[in-house]
Design a binder for these strands. Structure first.
Length: 770
DNA sequence: GACGCAACTTAGAATGCTATAT
DNA sequence: ATATAGCATTCTAAGTTGCGTC
């Protein structure tokens, strides 16, 4: 809501991004040719009795979900997040219709055509069956590794260690000559580099190249699994005697369980959560359950509770931890490392694999997103007696903490989890699973992208089909077609039904309700515009105005007939039906595959459009980020603008300004020098001219770099790039792009990402096409 | 076929760490 | 030398999907 302020720079680019997105995302519109429109006009449409009956029939939901949730126009109350910018607004939508031809592109993509069928086919045979294939052809080409090449990354850490040493030396030897120091540093840097390279090589050698192995038969996830069990958080430490809780102004010594929960609340006092009515009520109810009878009789009103001292103590502790000196921090770090070494790894089929979340979640107050009805409830401490262990029969069974036992030890190799427990707030299962760089996760990820690539081969047929289905006599089929149109065009999530009162009120495609869309016959000169406004996953607002094809528009009108706020838009459709239909069109196809597919294909297309080999690395990276951003906007990946955003933008701008002045000065000097050198053959003067020229050039380069950075940052203000990078973009597209553009991969993938996508980095050649 | 649960992926916020500016 | 911006990592909530059960 506060976003109208967005600067023109950001706005322009965003619109650009949208525009490009729609080039492909609107493909469904393509066939909205004159003919199609004419046909539609002739469409007898909704005269069928069945349809009318259907539309009136209330969905037989056991939970009776379709009750209006808000009287009148209270809609805005649910909007927890800043709206998606007006960028999704109109100017750009004009382009959508004008992009009609471009939208066909994937099929006619020069890449696919010019590369020749043979090659393309071969690639398909090679890769499309991906991780699930056991054929030799599917094995990635072996590559010589070049560990030295990537040697950069750890230098920082190693260097730092040596820096510490250096300082010591200087201190001890006081006035030693500068040259000695420098020499030493150089040597050290050399050693550091060597060390780093070695480490890297070591790491590479240790890496399990599972993608070169055969896949297990269906359903089997491992043959051998051994681990130490999860790590439990430390027991509660009682408050020191001088820290007191007050009720109604009088100090009250709480029982241990009540005190622990009180501290949970006190720790959060700076957070907005603790001011919310729902949070406070839930907390208070659960807190009282932990109290002794006397406590419960005394403490009747949360407003009379004074957590001030507990809060202050907590803040002090945080501060103290921050202010630890180097040695103390190192001690802590080593202690943590020890825990990781002991509990953070498991052995899976002869390989040591990192566990993703080996720590049991500590107790605390539940922090749901948005208006969660359960926010503030007590999340209880998990005991070993709550935990199920999963491992090999013939492995060393993990020992429960002293005096405890496990809830159960099982040996189920059709699942990937090592431990699980049931969480008390929502009653759902929590799992300990492997890290993203593990075989189990990586293989699945690879498979995901292969399914998305397979969709590419049949997406046209599927689109044609749902276009056709828009005219179906069956209401359910029509609804399915419209939903699919949204999912494909707008990358909406499937939208499962949710139990009312258990979670925040959020929706996806299939669970859209009539109040979430507004139909405009015309809006700002566009016809058939659908205005979306709803809260999606994590209560992130989705706001978008989209022109749709006429048939979709007409159907939407029909679906909304005789309905009121709170009623489902697609009352004859749910995600199961939708997915069942999809899987009949292509094995493995589900609603979310469209998100993966559209995200990846957008990236590939954007990279092709934006990239310019002549650009310098900074500009290339800006292009990459823009392509990435186009995807993030499509998928509605938002983030809260960084707290320091305005300020950091201002500092950057002032830097740019001062650099500009410098540049002006340098230019003047160059002019002057040229003047002086003119006619003269004095070598010295010529040299001066050259020098000045270089200075100007340098200035220009730096200025450009900063300006690029400023643009990038501005455009990124509330767009989260990481989510799509991590979950939606086929890494092979990025790897191939880096190879083609001669950009070091480290510039776009950090260490974690490189680790996660090791399979892609290893197998991708420059000619990879999604 | 509704329902609920199990298992797994996707998500943004919170926190931690490091490189860089001052 | 220290502060801090910004990236990386951790955390865990919130989705999707498939399956078994009645």
């Amino acid at each position: 809501m506060s976003d109208t302020k967005t600067s023109s720079v950001a706005r322009t680019t965003r619109i650009d991004n949208n525009r490009t997105i729609y080039k492909f995302a609107g493909m469904a519109e393509d066939s909205n040719s004159v003919k199609a429109v004419e046909k539609e006009l002739k469409d007898p449409g909704l005269s069928g009795d069945a349809l009318v009956v259907n539309s009136k029939k209330k969905k037989a939901k056991a939970k009776g979900k379709a009750k209006p949730q808000h009287e009148g126009k209270e809609k805005t109350h649910r909007k927890m997040k800043t709206p998606k910018e007006e960028s999704m607004d109109f100017e750009d939508s004009g382009d959508r219709s004008s992009q009609v031809n471009v939208k066909e592109e994937p099929e006619e993509d020069p890449d696919f055509v010019t590369k020749g069928n043979g090659k393309k086919r071969k690639r398909k045979v090679d890769n499309t069956d991906g991780p699930s294939s056991t054929s030799e052809a599917s094995l990635p080409k072996k590559k010589k590794k070049k560990p030295a090449e990537e040697g950069q990354e750890n230098s920082a850490t190693v260097k730092k260690k040596f820096k510490g040493k250096k300082e010591k030396v200087i201190k001890e030897e006081g006035g030693r000559s500068v040259s000695t120091k420098k020499k030493k540093t150089k040597e050290e840097i050399e050693t550091a580099r060597a060390l780093k390279i070695k480490k890297k090589e070591e790491e590479e050698k240790q890496r399990w190249r599972w993608w070169e192995e055969e896949k297990y038969e269906d359903g089997i996830k491992w043959r051998f699994l051994e681990h130490k069990g999860p790590y439990f958080p430390p027991e509660y430490q009682p408050l020191p005697d001088d820290i007191k809780f007050y009720y109604n102004g009088k100090p009250v010594k709480l029982s241990l369980p009540a005190e622990e929960v009180a501290l949970f609340f006190a720790q959060m006092l700076d957070h907005e959560y603790t001011t919310k009515e729902v949070f406070r009520n839930n907390f208070f109810r659960d807190w009282r359950k932990e109290m002794t009878l006397e406590e419960r009789q005394l403490i009747m009103d949360l407003n009379k509770c004074d957590f001030g001292e507990l809060h202050a103590m907590h803040k002090q502790k945080v501060e103290a931890r921050k202010n630890l000196n180097k040695e103390e921090k190192l001690v802590n770090k080593e202690a943590n490392q020890k825990i990781v070494d002991e509990y953070g790894y498991c052995v899976l089929d002869h390989h040591r694999e990192r566990i993703g979340n080996f720590k049991i979640e500590p107790p605390g107050l539940f922090r749901g997103r948005g208006d969660h009805p359960k926010q503030g409830m007590l999340k209880k401490r998990i005991q070993p007696e709550d935990v199920i262990i999963n491992c090999s029969k013939d492995s060393r069974i993990p020992e429960p903490p002293a005096g405890h036992r496990w809830k159960e030890v099982r040996h189920d190799n059709t699942v990937t989890w090592l431990a699980s427990w049931t969480e008390n707030v929502q009653g759902s299962c929590k799992y300990v699973m492997l890290n993203a760089n593990s075989k189990l996760k990586g293989e699945k990820d690879w498979e995901k992208y292969e399914v998305a690539r397979k969709l590419k081969t049949c997406v046209d047929a599927i689109r044609a089909q749902y276009q056709e289905d828009l005219k179906s006599k069956q209401m359910g089929t029509r609804q399915r077609a419209v939903a699919l149109y949204f999912i494909d065009k707008l990358a909406l999530r499937a939208g499962n039904e949710k139990e009312e009162g258990e979670t925040a009120d959020t929706v996806g495609c299939c669970s859209l309700r009539v109040e979430h869309i507004t139909l405009h016959d015309t809006l700002d000169g566009h016809k058939c515009v659908v205005e979306f406004d709803f809260l999606g996953k994590d209560c992130i607002r989705y706001y978008n105005k989209v022109p749709v094809i006429k048939r979709v528009f007409k159907n939407l009108k029909l679906f909304m007939e005789n309905k009121q706020e709170g009623d489902d838009l697609f009352d004859r459709l749910n995600t199961q039906m939708l997915n069942k239909h999809l899987s009949s069109l292509m094995p493995g196809l589900t609603a979310k595959v469209f998100r993966t597919y559209n995200a990846s294909i957008t990236l590939q297309q954007q990279l092709k459009e934006l990239g310019n080999m002549k650009d310098n690395v900074a500009e290339k990276l800006l292009s990459y980020n823009r392509a990435n951003r186009a995807v993030a906007i499509l998928c509605n990946h938002q983030r809260a603008p960084p707290k320091t955003f305005e300020q950091s933008m201002a500092t950057l701008q002032s830097k740019i300004d001062s650099r500009k002045e410098q540049l002006d000065l340098a230019k003047k000097e160059l002019k002057q020098a040229k003047k002086e050198a003119k006619g003269s053959s004095d070598n010295k003067l010529l040299i001066v001219v050259e020098k000045k020229k270089k200075a100007v050039q340098r200035c220009e380069e730096q200025l450009l770099k900063m300006e690029v950075q400023a643009t990038d940052r501005e455009e990124n203000k509330q767009v989260a790039l990481s989510t799509s990078k991590l979950n939606y973009l086929d890494p092979r597209i990025s790897v191939a792009w880096c190879k083609n553009m001669e950009v070091p991969l480290e510039k776009i993938y950090n260490k974690t990402l490189r680790d996660k996508f090791a399979w892609a980095i290893d197998m991708t050649e420059h000619d990879f096409v999604f």
